[in-house]
Deep mutational scan, measured.
Amino acid sequence: MIIKINGKYYKIKKIEKNPNGKYTITTENGKKYEFKNVKIFSEEELK
Rank of each mutant, 00 (worst) to 15 (best):
N18G: 14
S42V: 12
N29G: 13
Y10A: 04
Y9Q: 04
N6H: 11
Y33S: 01
P19W: 07
I25M: 02
V38N: 04
G7S: 05
T27H: 02
E16K: 05
K8M: 11
G21F: 02
G7H: 04
I40K: 04
E45W: 04
K39A: 09
Y10L: 11
K8F: 08
Y33A: 02
I25F: 04
I15T: 01
Y9F: 12
G7P: 00
I12V: 14
T24G: 02
P19T: 14
F41T: 08
I12F: 02
G7L: 02
K4P: 02
F41P: 06
K13N: 07
E28R: 07
V38Y: 04
E28A: 13
Y10E: 09
K8D: 05
I15V: 10
N20V: 03
I15C: 10
E45K: 07
E16A: 05
K17D: 02
G30C: 03
K13G: 06
Y10H: 11
K22T: 15
G30V: 00
N18Y: 05
M1Y: 11
K22Y: 15
I15L: 09
E34F: 10
L46C: 15
Y23A: 02
K14C: 11
E34S: 10
I2W: 15
S42M: 13
T24V: 15
E34R: 07
T26K: 01
K32N: 05
K36H: 11
N6Q: 11
K39L: 14
K13T: 14
I2L: 15
I12R: 00
G21H: 02
S42D: 09
E16H: 04
G30F: 01
N29D: 15
E34Y: 13
L46Q: 08
K32V: 15
N20H: 05
M1E: 04
K47C: 15
I12W: 01
K11W: 07
K11Q: 07
K47G: 13
I12L: 03
V38S: 05
G30S: 01
M1P: 05
F35Q: 05
N6T: 03
K47P: 10
Y33V: 06
Y9L: 09
K8I: 14
V38W: 03
F41M: 10
K11P: 05
I15Q: 01
M1T: 06
K14I: 08
I3Q: 00
E44W: 01
N20K: 05
N29Q: 08
E16T: 11
K11R: 13
K17Q: 10
M1C: 11
I15E: 00
E16D: 06
F35L: 13
K22N: 15
K36R: 10
N20F: 04
K39D: 12
I12M: 02
E44V: 07
K32M: 11
E16I: 08
N18H: 13
K47R: 12
K17V: 11
S42I: 12
M1L: 15
Y10P: 00
E43S: 03
S42Q: 11
I3D: 00
T24Q: 07
T26Q: 03
K8C: 15
I12A: 03
N18A: 11
E43Q: 04
N6V: 03
Y10Q: 09
G21D: 03
Y10K: 03
K22E: 11
I25S: 00
F41D: 04
E45N: 09
T27K: 01
I40W: 15
K13D: 06
E28F: 11
K4C: 15
G21R: 02
M1V: 09
E44T: 08
I5L: 06
L46I: 14
S42N: 12
Y9A: 04
K13I: 14
L46T: 08
I5T: 01
N18I: 03
G21L: 02
T26G: 00
F41A: 07
I5C: 08
E43C: 15
F35K: 04
K31I: 10
L46S: 07
Y23P: 00
I25C: 02
L46G: 08
N18P: 02
E43Y: 04
E43P: 08
I5G: 01
N29C: 11
K11F: 07
